[in-house]
Write a protein that binds this DNA or RNA. Structure first.
Lengths: 353, 353
DNA sequence: TTGTAGGCGTTATCAA
DNA sequence: TTGATAACGCCTACAA
């Protein structure tokens, strides 16, 4: 078993060693067509002896199909959401004989464009955006005539869209706090409408909308308890800073809420840092709910939060990609809307009256 | 500009449209050889008009070189360390015209084997392990005759090894705590020697070794303050559980340390959860130091920790990979040892006497 | 049941 | 300065 020849061995070498034609080797390899048992054995012996590894590049060229799907990630740190989606994509793709090419763009449209070009250059069979930065890049991918899936925050209405029912998630969180007796509930999150694109903005609209609707229904909506800011910037400090600063402001003014609904775990982490500094006990003095279920299990106290089906989104995106590749099983170009659920942990309790 | 033809256009189409031979198109594309200015213009016009995108698969086949490096990741969640390394690899590779194929193995040797096979099938030009699971898989990669780099925890002494001076890092952390007056310092981490492989075990040996040496030098080493456990299991709960349980035990016995040195931020997070539940103030009642600088900025209070040069490791791995690819600049197959540094944040303070 | 051969899209050599 | 052409390794009609 000479491993050092591995990458150099080709189907011709195997054929020679087995004393057959390359077509026969291919037939054995793909279990395809009639092959005599003795011939098969000879071929397998040669394959093992040479450590032959089929050349995916040559095969892709011949087949005009790469068996690769390209996955563009908006970012990988600090928010682990995208990484979880990536695992969903990889798990499903691997299980179905596909390789995933992952490209991290760190929120930069130009990097995303380069990623799309790289993918098209490698003739990937489908492209997944989690999440797209620029509609143009989505269009460019669509133009290649391959399935394109946009996950969580679409930028274009073309292709397949996987979204999440953030309204229901936020509504659940609010119902939980309200059932615990809270009325002065603060909101920390990105300002709805601050995304330049109407498709991508639904997340903020829904999360804040459910918050506002719930309190308006009770007649206790109070604008002074709303802190908008750059929730999803990529700088660690900014993301953490908004929740932190908002809480500090309220506490300094002596007008603190009895509960805070943060639109991400990252922001909730900042809230916990501020309450901790002020010597407030969570949840005794103030309850906190997050969104995403990413950092939540690692915070002190463990954070009650809204679970985002990240892995499920990734797996579904990969499935839809594969189903829609020409020749795939069922071409079901149907967009889907996923559900969240509330995860109860230790950061919420009855209002301390 | 008909985008819908993008992936179908080939160099022949471009050549026809420009009224030249394919060889001339290639010369223009690669800025290679003599081309008349007027010809170049004609070709560029045709390239733009057709939206021609070079087929990386065909080029790789012809060149017997893919311009892809394969990166095997031990895991991506919950520990963000690996993801940070991945970004370092991607950043460097992209900047030098290489694409990175990332394969996440989630701690599973069989998945790692499949990853190596996939990479070899795609004829990647180099393979990076961050970090390897099985020495056999490293050997298999080496057998292909391409550069192989092992990052942080090597499993084999072959190829290029990038390691970190964990001893110095842990020593710094201990010196910091000792300078603050702490003597009863606890340790939470994986048991040295529990890795079946001597190469990979140096991390635990060094982190714990520096802890033990520092306290022995002071004559205050106390085995009852050492909590060993499965620090690096992939289950969130287990990882967090060790730090959490250790602290609970000490507090229940009424023998609490005045400081804790946790061998990862993940474990430190568990320590903070336990102290928080017990109503202890960090750092007033007890100081905590972590390792890695991953979760540290998001915890409450922000965690003093030892910075691991994750991005730097990734970038260096990619650089060494490229340098050692046949035909690359300088073949410098030299292993390197990286330095850490202490990051002072809010979780440590003078011993409260 | 097995072999022959053309072509996937590029690159690079050799002529012209 | 440009063009024709033979590979790269594999797959797949089509023959045998």
């Amino acid at each position: 078993l000479d491993l050092s020849l591995t990458t150099k061995t080709n189907i011709k070498d195997v054929a020679e060693r087995a004393g057959v034609a390359t077509a026969t080797v291919a037939r054995v390899l793909h279990n395809n067509g009639y092959v005599a048992e003795t011939t098969r054995a000879k071929v397998m012996e040669a394959v093992n002896a040479t450590g032959y590894q089929i050349n995916a590049i040559a095969r892709s060229l011949k087949r005009s199909r790469s068996n690769v799907i390209g996955h563009l990630l908006q970012s990988t740190v600090p928010n682990p959401f995208f990484v979880k989606v990536a695992r969903g994509v990889e798990d499903y793709a691997q299980k179905h004989g596909y390789t995933t090419l992952t490209y991290n763009v760190q929120g930069d449209a130009e990097a995303e464009r380069k990623g799309v070009e790289t993918f098209l250059g490698w003739r990937v069979d489908a492209i997944i955006f989690t999440t797209p930065i620029s509609a143009e890049n989505v269009d460019r991918a669509m133009g290649a005539g391959i399935p394109v899936i946009q996950v969580e925050r679409p930028r274009s209405d073309k292709g397949i869209l996987l979204t999440v029912d953030n309204y229901a998630g936020a509504k659940d969180a609010m119902a939980h706090l309200i059932s615990l007796g809270h009325r002065r509930i603060a909101y920390v999150g990105q300002r709805p409408g601050s995304q330049e694109n109407r498709f991508a903005d639904y997340v903020e609209e829904e999360r804040f909308g459910a918050y506002r609707d719930a309190l308006k229904a009770l007649g206790t909506f109070d604008e002074s308890l709303v802190a908008f800011g750059a929730a999803y910037t990529l700088s660690d400090m900014d993301a953490h800073g908004l929740g932190y600063k908002a809480i500090n402001d309220w506490l300094d003014k002596g007008e603190r809420p009895t509960a805070v609904f943060a639109s991400s775990d990252l922001l909730a982490a900042g809230v916990l840092q501020a309450t901790n500094e002020h010597g407030l006990q969570v949840p005794h003095d103030i309850s906190v709910v997050g969104f995403d279920d990413t950092l939540a299990p690692f915070l002190a106290p463990e954070l009650t939060t809204v679970y985002m089906p990240a892995h499920e989104l990734g797996a579904a995106a990969a499935k839809l990609a594969l189903d829609n590749i020409a020749g795939g099983a069922g071409a079901t170009a149907v967009s889907e809307r996923f559900k969240t659920h509330l995860v109860l942990r230790a950061s919420t309790a009855s209002k301390n009256s």
